[in-house]
């Protein structure tokens, strides 16, 4: 049973049985409260507008509006609502596409219960849900694509006031932290690298989130590449 101040979750899946399964698994967790269920993307969007949950568990393949389209919509209009994609597909392309759409993470539907709850908690605390190797690979691929796409005009990019404002607002330290985030480092590792405390790193990260208008690390890095605030790390 959920306790006061529990995170408010919405479950979106077109299979009623799967929704029931998720509800059964998660309702045992006192820090989660399931506030709503939707069976397609459009319903999910409506529900999010109405309830502004903390997190949405989003299936991908659904009728009417698929989970990725719904994620894009949710993130565009309700940027504080985090989305965790739930799917049976186990490959990078789906993860990459989910993150492109604005999801904070990606969990397999047949993940053990602990893995699912951990992922939800990580997203809620603004940490990356992806394992570090995978995150690094994904980010590199994403960065490479952003880089490639913009290459033709990179010699003389058109002025972007939003980018300029963000660049202006970030401190030198925050940009350093951002670059280490892009390498998939944990707060502890960043603290060690920069000779600062973990608490200070947490503060920097929260400031970075606010300035970039994102709610988690992965999205922060994606944003940073998109605005060319940091250059992609060398490809492995």
């Amino acid at each position: 049973m959920s306790e006061p101040g529990a995170a408010r979750l919405v479950i979106v899946d077109d299979h009623e049985l799967v929704r029931a399964g998720l509800r059964a698994m998660l309702s045992a967790e006192p820090d989660f409260e399931i506030v709503g269920e939707a069976s397609d993307g459009a319903e999910a969007l409506e529900l999010c507008r109405e309830l502004t949950p903390d997190l949405v568990l989003m299936d991908v393949r659904m009728p009417r509006m698929d989970g990725l389209a719904a994620t894009r919509e949710v993130k565009q209009h309700l940027s504080r609502v985090s989305v965790l994609i739930l799917t049976v597909h186990e490959n990078q392309d789906y993860m990459l596409e989910a993150i492109r759409a604005g999801a904070s993470g990606y969990v397999l539907k047949d993940a053990p219960r602990e893995q699912l709850t951990t992922a939800i908690r990580k997203v809620l605390s603004g940490e990356s849900t992806l394992n570090r190797n995978l995150a690094t690979q994904l980010i590199q691929r994403l960065a490479f694509e952003v880089y490639e796409r913009e290459e033709p005009s990179s010699a003389n990019p058109p002025p972007d006031p939003e980018r300029a404002a963000i660049l202006e607002s970030l401190s030198t330290r925050e940009r350093e932290v951002l670059e280490l985030l892009a390498l998939g480092h944990t707060n502890r590792k960043i603290a060690q690298t920069l000779f600062i405390s973990v608490g200070t790193v947490k503060n920097h990260v929260e400031h970075i989130f606010a300035k970039l208008g994102v709610s988690d690390r992965t999205q922060a890095v994606v944003r940073a590449f998109e605005f060319r605030i940091i250059t992609p790390p060398a490809l492995q």
């Binding site: 049985l17 799967v18 399964g21 059964a24 049976v88 047949d110 219960r113």
Partner: peptide, 22 residues
């Protein structure tokens, strides 16, 4: 298979896990 059997198996798995936790 994706929409039918897989989702059923997923749901069963989730229910079993829920059962275990209760």
């Amino acid at each position: 298979v994706h929409d039918g059997m897989t989702q059923l198996a997923v749901a069963s798995y989730q229910h079993l896990q829920a059962f275990t936790s209760y």
